[in-house]
């Protein structure tokens, strides 16, 4: 899809700037493909933050203690804020907020497939914090180095805040794993259901990732999908094992020679089914997002009316 265009002086200077480690900012010259790819990535990322509030927001009224409830409210509010940072970054590239919002509500926009799985019990909230936010941090740490200033800045803020999300989840799962047999079982069950979808969050293998080459040359993605997945695996596998949880992958093993954990084959056919809209929760998420938007209509009307009368 993205072809190297003729190397014009502007394009050469653009690539030289990226080569020197300069950031591209709104108003700077950029190739159309750079703008398009960034709008695609940033808007999908923004939608993911917004839809990502749904699986956890459900549990705010069911938190087992006041402390856990305050933590979860803060986390869900952060995700909403992250969506706002990212919609802003996309707007600086010339797409309107309204256009993005309508695309999401109409079901035309993509967002991370991880949010199309159900949260069945409280242990899922811990597992999402630890693994889903943990995986997101790995990806976002890479994107914090990207060449587009507004996206990079959003990622730096988001990574700092997501670290709290990841740690509160890990704290919860570590406690469950050291708790009663029933609590251990809940943690194990959550791991069994979330493990593979989490590994899929890093996207297709490098050999099947068509956009990667130009995105790397232009400093948008600075590490490949498989590289970031490996970083995540090497971090969490020993931690999960240390608390006695069983990772649901019989082929998982430690490659002592190059000191990396190696996972078994990922079910990409399943992944693409979820991406295409056939995951367990795709329809529910879209319906919930639309319902929330519709329920907020009177608030938008009221503040607009108030502003117009001043």
């Amino acid at each position: 899809m993205t072809q190297a265009t003729d190397i014009t002086p502007k394009l050469a200077e653009f690539e030289a700037r990226i080569g020197r480690g300069e950031k591209i900012e709104p108003g700077d010259w950029m190739p159309d493909d750079y703008r398009k790819q960034l709008i695609r990535m940033i808007s999908q990322h923004a939608h993911s933050e917004i839809v990502g509030m749904l699986p956890e927001g459900n549990y705010i009224t069911r938190a087992p203690s006041l402390r856990r409830k305050m933590v979860l409210i803060a986390k869900v509010q952060d995700e909403g804020g992250h969506g706002q940072y990212l919609y802003h970054a996309a707007e600086t590239l010339g797409i309107s907020r309204d256009e993005m919002e309508q695309a999401l509500l109409a079901g035309k926009a993509k967002y991370s497939s991880i949010f199309n799985y159900p949260t069945l019990n409280w242990a899922d909230i811990g597992m999402i914090g630890w693994l889903v936010d943990g995986a997101a941090i790995k990806n976002q740490t890479m994107l914090a180095h990207c060449s587009y200033g507004p996206y990079s800045r959003a990622m730096v803020r988001i990574c700092a805040e997501e670290t709290f999300h990841q740690r509160q989840g890990k704290e919860m799962i570590v406690k469950y794993a050291q708790g009663t047999p029933n609590q251990r079982q809940m943690a194990q069950d959550a791991l069994n259901r979330w493990w593979w979808p989490v590994l899929m969050m890093f996207g297709p293998h490098d050999s099947d990732s068509p956009n990667s080459e130009v995105l790397r040359r232009w400093g948008v993605k600075t590490q490949s999908n498989d590289t970031v997945r490996q970083l995540f695996l090497d971090e969490v596998v020993p931690e999960l094992m240390a608390i006695g949880l069983q990772i649901p992958d019989p082929q998982l093993h430690f490659d002592a020679e190059n000191k990396h954990w190696k996972h078994g084959p990922i079910d990409w056919a399943h992944f693409w089914q979820v991406v295409k809209g056939n995951g367990p929760m795709n329809k529910e998420r879209l319906a919930a997002r639309n319902q929330a938007h519709d329920n907020g209509a009177w608030v938008r009307d009221a503040v607009t009316a108030y502003a117009s009368r001043k």
Partner: peptide, 8 residues
């Protein structure tokens, strides 16, 4: 509890 250091 919003600070990562809280869970350090």
């Amino acid at each position: 509890y919003r600070q990562q250091a809280y869970y350090g």
